[in-house]
Design a protein around this nucleic acid. Sequence first.
DNA 1: CCTAATTTAGAACATAAGTTTTATGTTAAG
DNA 2: CTTAACATAAAACTTATGTTCTAAATTAGG
Lengths: 217, 217
Amino acid sequence: MVTSKKMPPRRQRILAFLQEFYSDNSIPPTVRDIQRACEISSTSVVDYNLEKLREAGYINRRQDVARGIEILDQEGEPISNAPRVQILGLIAAGAPIPAWSVEESEASREFDTVEISPELLRQHGKLFALRVNGTSMIDALIDDGDVVIIKPSSVANNGEMVVAWLKEEEETTLKKFYAEGSQVRLQPANSTMEPIYSPAENVEVHGKVVSVIRNLG
Amino acid sequence: MVTSKKMPPRRQRILAFLQEFYSDNSIPPTVRDIQRACEISSTSVVDYNLEKLREAGYINRRQDVARGIEILDQEGEPISNAPRVQILGLIAAGAPIPAWSVEESEASREFDTVEISPELLRQHGKLFALRVNGTSMIDALIDDGDVVIIKPSSVANNGEMVVAWLKEEEETTLKKFYAEGSQVRLQPANSTMEPIYSPAENVEVHGKVVSVIRNLG
DNA sequence: CCTAATTTAGAACATAAGTTTTATGTTAAG
DNA sequence: CTTAACATAAAACTTATGTTCTAAATTAGG
């Protein structure tokens, strides 16, 4: 089931289409859907390649079942059609945030992703995620290892939890945002902690936190 | 599309089966799958009831497409096949936890549920969820409105985050659990907060917290 | 260049699965 | 009771869709 050999382009295309179709339609495609989308001359060729993909452990096929293709993850488990967002990197106080490389990396299968609820995506549109490194966000009720889902934005309304970059301090932080004249108040979510104040020019909003996911032992 | 009338039991059963089948199999059932599972004598009866469900806005049907049933959520959007767990109720300091009614409430659609990642379910088995009410869990890095995913358990290992019921205080709390002789130390996740100690007899473990979900504006 | 393995083609086949039709039983309102 | 709307049945029909077969083209080694 392990295969490190490079896949023929046609087979790669089929696999990509399987994933795209399933995400978009909530059901797997038929052999003929694949044939059309991947511009293949015969259903038998599709069948042949699906068989190869099965041998390589990428998919599962239910015999004689309409739309019986299951797409498997690295552990060989069927994947759900819930949308996934990429975890673009780590966030920590003092660490700059990686440039939003929102391009669709073709080999997206290799990337670290988290499943998010469809509602979230519907509500906010394009999202990405960062994994929190260290306990420096503890005052935002965010622990080491948590994943924060972020909607890219360079502006924020008062009271929203934002990813803020403090230029002078060269520090990233997650706080509630309040514009107060020429000052910005960054208020920890944890009310026992003190807010910090900074001149508006020193604060760069990179995005809004729309969700936090924490998985324990 | 709005319907507040009570649904016939058979239709309710079909709807429940649709959801269960889709979660379990990653593809929607066929008319004949439904027929078998719901002990219906004819495919036309299934078709008839599916049509009614469609009119009522519960599902969508793709004409002439095999397994073309889409299950819709309250907003009329297709749901994903990611597993969902019920939010059994609220948790707050001082509030008792509702009895684990693990029974499958038939009208499960009416209930509040959260989508969880398949891995989580695979890893932990049967789970349920509680919505946190108030900021009393703030020392566990859990905010008002957060949803905690819990694995039922009456025992815990040191260091695990547990749902603990303090008998005398009549209080529920989320803390890290440490058995220390005849005492139990309940340690807030937030290291700036102080632990509480209690005799082992006074502490009743109800479950382990395996995930925390927070959605913001 | 030759041969074997891999991949592609075209067509036909078999059945899985949606749909339709007609009839019968059940319930609720007047 | 009567009637109409609702619900169930049985069977047949159509097509969507997986599968198979045979042959040809292409690629990879030796």
